[in-house]
Nucleic acid binder design. Structure first.
Length: 563
RNA sequence: CGGAGUGUAGCUCAGGUGGGAGAGCACGUGCCUUGGGAGCACGGGGUCGCAGGUUCAAGUCCUGCCACUCCGACCA
C-alpha cells in the first residue's frame, strides 16, 4: 500500500480529554476516531488490525470444532421476554420499535437468539453436539463508556454457544474452548491470566475469565506463582490459618465517644484491627435485611454474599434505613440484633473481640460467638487480597489488575429450560440441552494489545496483528534513485507476500519518522543518504536496533522478514 | 445513576472588571528545504455547544438544556 493514497490521519498532539495510552495512540496514529461516547469509527489501519485479530480467532474456533454463523443484530422483544431479560437487562438494552409499534432490541449478546435457532431445528440427540460462534457488532447502553475501545456502547465481540446432550459432554466442549482461547491469546502475543470467575447474573455452573495484565485495569485478580491458582477477587478463595485457642474473658461494655471506624477503635482501645469486628447491615433485593460480621482488617465480598443469599442484589443499608431499624450508625452490633446474623469464616476461631454495643458511643470488648450472641453460620464472605494464603498451596497470593478480554461459562440449562430447547435422548425421554457460552471482546483486544505494546513514541505492534509488516520510508521522494529503490523493494516485498507500506509522501523526513514510530509497524527500511553507497537502513520498531543493509543482500533480508 | 470538570478555527488552547474573536500547529498558493514533526511571504477558515434572559451592548453575567471527559456505583 502507498502511504500517499492511504487515509492515515495522524495527530501531532494528544487529543484533549483522552487519558490512557491505548486510547491516545489509537487516535493519534490514525486507527480510530470517536463519533459519540463509546462509539468509534475504524479507519483503514484500525480495520486491518481488527481483521487480523478476527482471523486468528476464526482459525482457532474452527480448529476446535465450532462453526461460524451470523445472527441478526435486531432482535424481537418476544425472545427477551421469554427469558425475563427484557425486564432484567434494564437500561443497558438499546430498545426500539418498528412501524407497527412492536418492540425490538439491538443485541447486547445472543443467548436467546441462538437458543431459538437450535430449539426450532434440533429434535434428537443425533443432532447434537453443536457449537456456533459469530463475530458481530454488539450494543450495550453503558452507563459510563470509557477508555476508547475498552468499554464502548457499540463494540465487536466474538460470541459462541455450545449445545450438548450431557453435562459430561458439555464440560468437554468447555475444555476445548478453554484450549482454543489459550491458543488465541498466546498467538496475539498477550501477557494474560486465565482466572476462575464468578458466574454472575448469567448463571451456570462455573466460568473462567481471560484477563490481560495491565496497570489500572478494572478487573482485580489474585494469583499464585507457585501452584498457578488464579481467580478474580469476586470469586477468589483463600486459605485461613487457624488461630490458637484463648481463655474467654468476661464481656464488658466500654465508653468509646465518637469512635466509629475500625481504625479509630483499634487505636483508641489499643487493640489490633484483626480483633475488631465490623457489623455490616445489608439490604437484600429491596425486601429484607441481614447483618454480616467480618474481621476489621478484611473487606466483605458482596458477590459472595449475594451468591450465598441467592440474591440478585445486595447493598449496604442507608442511614435512613439503619435509623428505621433502630440501629445506631457506627455502633451496629450482633448483640441484641433483631435481624438475621451471618458471619465470615474469619470469626470462626476468633475470641475476645470488639463489636459495637447497639448504643451510641459504646462498644463491647471480649465478645465471643455462641456465649454472647448466636449466628446462622460461618461462611466465606471475605475478599482475597495480596498476601493471603493460596487456597491450594497456602503460599502468599499476589494481586494484579487487568482487562477482561475473554469469558467462558458453562451455562447448564438456564436458557434451554426457559425457552424449551429440548432434545429426545437415547432413552426416548425429552431433556433440556446443556449449554455453554464463550465471549471474546474483539475490539477491546485492539486496545489491550496496545496497552501492552507501546512506548513514549507510539505503538509497537506484535507481528501477528500489525497493520503492515514492513514500512519503507523514502526520505526524499524527489531523489529519483531513492524513490526508484523504494518501489523496487516494495515490489519485491509484495511478491514475497509481505504486507508492506511505502511512505512515498512528499513531506519532511521528520514527519515520516514521527509517523512510523506512532503507527508502530514492526520492520522498517529507511532509504536516505547511504543509498549512494548501495545501502539502506534497517530499523526494528521493537528493539530500535539499526543497521545498514547492502542492497545486494536485500532478497535474503526480505526472506527473513517474511519468516 | 451520584460527584467533578470541560465546551471558542480542523487540532491544542488563550481570551481579569461586559464594548475589537485571537495564537501556535494544520490547510491553500509561491519561494526555499529534505535523516527526527524546517523557514519566509501572502491567504482561506468561526452558529464562541444550544435555547432563553439581563443590558444601549454578552465568548464574558443569570437560568435551563445538550454533548463530551474524569472519579464512583453499575457492567451477560
Amino acid at each position: 500500500m502507498l502511504a500517499s493514497r492511504l487515509f492515515i490521519p495522524t495527530l501531532k498532539e494528544n487529543p484533549s480529554d483522552v487519558q490512557i495510552p491505548s486510547h491516545i495512540y489509537l487516535i493519534r496514529a490514525g486507527f480510530i476516531r470517536s463519533l459519540s461516547a463509546g462509539i468509534y469509527e475504524y479507519l483503514p489501519l484500525g480495520l486491518k488490525v481488527l481483521r487480523k485479530i478476527e482471523e486468528i480467532i476464526r482459525k482457532h474456533m474452527d480448529g476446535a470444532g465450532a462453526q461460524e454463523v451470523l445472527l441478526p443484530i435486531l432482535t424481537p422483544a418476544s425472545l427477551w421476554k421469554e427469558t425475563g431479560r427484557w425486564d432484567v437487562y434494564g437500561k443497558e438494552l438499546f430498545r426500539l420499535k418498528d412501524r407497527k409499534d412492536t418492540d425490538f432490541a439491538l443485541g447486547p449478546t445472543h443467548e436467546e437468539t441462538i437458543t431459538d435457532l437450535v430449539r426450532k431445528n434440533v429434535r434428537s440427540y443425533k443432532d447434537l453436539p453443536l457449537n456456533f460462534y459469530q463475530i458481530q457488532t454488539k450494543f450495550r447502553d453503558e452507563a459510563r463508556p470509557r477508555y476508547g475501545l475498552i468499554r464502548g456502547r457499540e463494540f465487536i465481540m466474538k460470541d459462541g454457544y455450545s449445545f450438548d446432550v450431557s453435562e459430561e459432554d458439555a464440560v468437554k466442549t468447555y475444555d476445548a474452548m478453554k484450549e482454543a482461547y489459550h491458543k488465541i491469546f498466546s498467538e496475539l502475543g498477550l501477557d494474560y491470566l486465565m482466572v476462575e470467575a464468578d458466574v454472575g447474573a448469567i448463571g451456570g455452573k462455573f466460568s473462567h475469565e481471560f484477563v490481560v495484565k495491565v496497570p489500572n485495569g478494572e478487573a482485580h485478580m489474585v494469583y499464585c506463582d507457585n501452584c498457578r491458582y488464579a481467580a478474580n477477587v469476586e470469586a477468589a478463595k483463600f486459605h485461613r490459618h487457624k488461630l490458637p485457642p484463648e481463655e474467654l474473658l468476661p464481656l464488658q461494655k466500654v465508653y468509646t465517644p465518637g469512635i466509629k471506624s475500625v481504625e479509630e477503635i483499634s487505636k483508641f482501645l489499643n487493640i489490633p484491627e484483626n480483633k475488631v469486628i465490623k457489623t455490616l447491615v445489608y439490604r437484600v433485593d429491596e425486601d429484607g435485611y441481614v447483618a454480616v460480621l467480618i474481621r476489621g482488617d478484611m473487606e466483605l465480598n458482596e458477590t459472595k454474599l449475594a451468591n450465598h443469599l441467592k440474591a440478585l442484589e445486595v447493598r449496604l443499608a442507608t442511614s435512613q434505613e439503619l435509623e428505621s431499624l433502630g440501629i445506631p450508625e457506627g455502633y451496629a452490633s450482633p448483640i441484641g440484633s433483631n435481624i438475621p446474623i451471618l458471619a465470615d469464616r474469619s470469626l470462626e476461631d476468633l475470641h475476645n473481640f470488639v463489636v459495637g454495643a447497639n448504643e451510641f458511643d459504646y462498644h463491647f470488648i471480649n465478645t465471643n460467638v455462641g456465649r454472647d450472641f448466636n449466628i446462622e453460620g460461618f461462611y466465606d464472605f471475605g475478599t482475597a487480597k495480596e498476601g493471603d494464603p493460596c487456597p491450594v498451596c497456602h503460599l502468599p497470593l499476589k494481586e494484579t489488575t487487568g482487562l477482561e478480554v475473554g469469558h467462558i461459562f458453562l451455562l447448564g440449562t438456564k436458557y434451554s429450560k426457559a425457552m424449551n430447547a429440548n432434545f429426545v435422548d437415547r432413552d426416548g425421554k425429552e431433556k433440556p440441552i446443556i449449554m455453554g457460552c464463550y465471549g471474546i471482546g474483539v475490539s477491546r483486544l485492539i486496545s489491550a494489545i496496545v496497552e501492552q505494546n507501546h512506548d513514549d513514541r507510539g505503538i509497537i505492534w506484535p507481528e501477528n496483528v500489525a497493520p503492515f509488516k514492513l514500512h519503507i520510508l523514502v526520505l526524499n521522494i524527489k531523489e529519483e534513485d531513492a524513490i526508484k529503490t523504494g518501489f523496487e523493494i516494495y515490489s519485491k516485498a509484495k511478491a514475497l507476500g509481505i504486507d508492506t507500506l511505502l511512505d512515498d509522501r512528499d513531506i519532511s523526513p521528520g514527519m515520516k519518522f514521527k509517523d512510523t514510530d506512532l503507527i508502530g509497524i514492526p520492520h522498517r527500511i529507511v532509504i536516505g543518504k547511504t543509498l549512494k553507497e548501495g545501502k539502506v537502513e534497517y530499523q526494528s520498531r521493537k528493539e530500535s536496533k539499526k543497521f545498514q543493509l547492502d542492497l545486494e543482500d536485500l532478497d535474503n533480508f526480505l526472506e527473513s522478514v517474511k519468516r
